[in-house]
Amino acid sequence: MAKYLLLKHYRGAPTEPGFEPMDHWSPEEVTAHIQYMNDFAAKLEEAGEYVDGQALAPDGMWVRYDGEGRPPVTDGPFAETKDLIAGFMIIDVDSPERAIELAGELSAAPGKDGKPIREWLEVRPLYGEPSLVTE
């Protein structure tokens, strides 16, 4: 059993040809997309594999220490290139194959004209606990 983080990015990965941002979809398409996400989470809980999930607002900041006595620097020189995380989901599954299967399913969420958006998802394992038997 291991936990995986599924990361949804706003940008940072190549976009699909024909990709339309969400505000160009019809309201029904937006609703259908959100419904898919909610159903997906509910299905995972039902399968005993859901741990957590949150959507993140896009207006994030980069912050960096800027030396003793100085306020931290906010935002960086990355305004054009920075990648933003749109949201995440943490799952607890029996195998890496299962994590990939679920990420693939999440990436199939419907978008414009009800077609799968095929967005790239990043799948990252979480560290577990050290096992007791070591030799």
């Binding site: 936990k3 809980e45 039902e46 399968a47 005993g48 594999e49 859901y50 741990v51 957590d52 607890d92």
Partner: peptide, 10 residues
């Protein structure tokens, strides 16, 4: 380290 609802379903 999973929610109680998830464990109940499992």
């Amino acid at each position: 380290l999973v929610p109680e609802a998830t464990m109940a379903q499992r």
